[in-house]
Amino acid sequence: MSIQWFPGHMHLTRKAITERVKDIDVVIEMLDARLPGSSANPLLAELTSGKPTLKVVNKQDMADAARTALWLAHYNAQPHTRAIALDASVTAPARAIVAACFELAPLRGGMVKPMRVLICGIPNVGKSTLINTLMGKRAAKTGDEAGITRNEQRIALADDFYLFDTPGMLWPRIVVPESGFNLAASGAVGRNAYDDQEVALELLAKLKHAYAPMLEARYRLGLSASAIGALHDDELLEAIGRKRGALAGGGAVNGQKAAELVIADFRSGALGRITLETPEEFTRWLGAGLQADEARQDRKKSRLPKARKPDRR
């Protein structure tokens, strides 16, 4: 299954970013620390090309600390880019982004040349929570549903620091299948864009190898890490559903309820601090995804009718 979600308001966001970025000094892209590569928008990189970028790896308190360190090193090694990790609800780390922006654009500041910052990110990544933390009040709507913010907002964080908030935006085509599942697991795509059971199975396929002890601690399956890793994904989902009482008539496991339970536990952090991808893994996925998409485009072109030659009679 290929997961895709690009509702109409995202086209408007794309246009708004294209116009706004002309007058912007620094671009902040917020990422989900549990899936930093998958939550980085390639379309945004294209739209903001040439602008200094601050990668804010958000929700670090829910992510694997060792893997977060790998991602910070990965992004900090890129030109004109800085990366910091934070939990958007914590005031002190959140304010560090203001200092980071002035480091990226040291010639800005003061009433004559105020800092102009565009903050972007995928839906449900925590932008509004961060803005409210910076402002010390409820300046932006928040929620756990993708697509809460629908219009651009201009917010003055200081007399010489203006922040432009945009609605969360994905990209028109997700070419990395693993990213589609990771985004769905995190709640970044609309509920009607994916099947819960398929997403839960893909999620468990990752967790049973990298985080098997956490699965055992949460669901009390009575299995060793190696035994959990050896289970088929369907078997693991069934075992979790049976243990947690996600049952249908006759004592059979209700796959839908079991899937919803697993996804909810991941999103809430009940499973523990988890990161679904490393920079090395994502680079490999991206290469394969781009190659597959190129082949798809070639097949599409080959099916187009050939242009008729002009009649020279």
Rank of each mutant, 00 (worst) to 15 (best):
K301Y: 10
G269I: 06
I122W: 01
F181Q: 01
D61I: 10
A227C: 12
A210R: 11
I97V: 15
G287K: 15
L304D: 13
G255K: 14
S89H: 10
W5Q: 00
P177C: 06
A40W: 04
L104H: 07
A270L: 14
F6I: 03
L247Q: 03
A69E: 15
L236H: 03
G168Y: 02
D165H: 08
G245R: 04
L204K: 06
A264F: 01
Q291S: 14
R108V: 11
L104K: 06
L70H: 07
L183W: 00
F282V: 05
A252Y: 13
S49K: 14
M1R: 11
K59T: 06
D195V: 14
I155W: 02
E103R: 11
S226W: 13
L31M: 09
M10Y: 09
R308Q: 12
I174D: 10
F161T: 10
C101P: 06
C120K: 00
E152R: 14
A105D: 11
A292E: 15
N151T: 13
A139C: 08
G136S: 11
K51P: 01
S302P: 00
T278C: 09
T18R: 15
K15W: 01
I122A: 09
A16C: 03
V90C: 11
A288L: 12
P7D: 05
E202V: 00
T283G: 12
Q197M: 13
L12S: 15
L54Q: 00
A88G: 12
K55W: 09
G249L: 13
P310Q: 13
